[in-house]
Amino acid sequence: MRSARSLLAATAVLALAAALTACTANNPPSNNGAQNAPKVDGTVTVFAAASLKESFTELGKRFEAAYPGAKVSFNFGGSSALAQSIVSGAPVDVFAAASPATMKTVTDAKLTGEDPRVFVRNTLEIAVAKGNPKHIGGLKDLGGVKTALCAKEVPCGAAAVTALKAAGVEVTPATYEQDVKGALTKVELGEVDASLVYRTDVKADAAKIDGVEFPESAQAVNDYPVVSLGKAPNANGAAAFLGYLNSMDARRVLTEAGFQVP
């Protein structure tokens, strides 16, 4: 078991090294690559949207393996709440938000080190109970069943409004959930028949729910911007993490989680 794990880790490091080289080659102006960057150590504090939790946790492990001496500390939460705490002075190196609108709170406060970059996109799917017992085929079917939507104040809710408008469908949900995980849980527990959630959430919970894709999702794509903070306590670490997000290795992890990587 132990040897298997270390073998896996070694493979990961090799793959990472290869990916980093590739990455540096792909982005000549960037000096974020491991080889020629300043030494990276200490803790890198990353505030990230809740929907990034599974993939970022995995990326954090790989990053730490690539940079011995560095440690990534994550704070996952609603993007708006995270943005609020950054504006209020939280010591953060990297901020990854689930929408440009929430990122704007931070850029407007002139707290960013450079312009935010969209690193992944997320689209909506209809989450339904395993086996889709209500035979939901698209957004138009949501009117006839008990549905949970995200509140319009949070990114997944805003995206849902856009998608429903694009489909020309009016849905009165049973509840406007405070975040996407809440909407997902309600399906999982059987309290609602369907909810509009991110594709990544459906993938992460594939054992308990099924996802139904719908064409209008293309018009409600959520951009995830990421940025390093101007006052980052660990500027080297922030730069290295941003660079790593662009690596082949990271892109593969994010793609597997269900994100679209531009």
């Binding site: 609603g78 709440a81 509140a151 406007y176 405070q178």
Partner: peptide
Amino acid sequence: AGNFPGRTQTMPLAVYLAMESD
């Protein structure tokens, strides 16, 4: 009870969601 204005959205829920945007 979820969150639906007029039916299940109490003041604390309204405060929390308002905090997200305004």
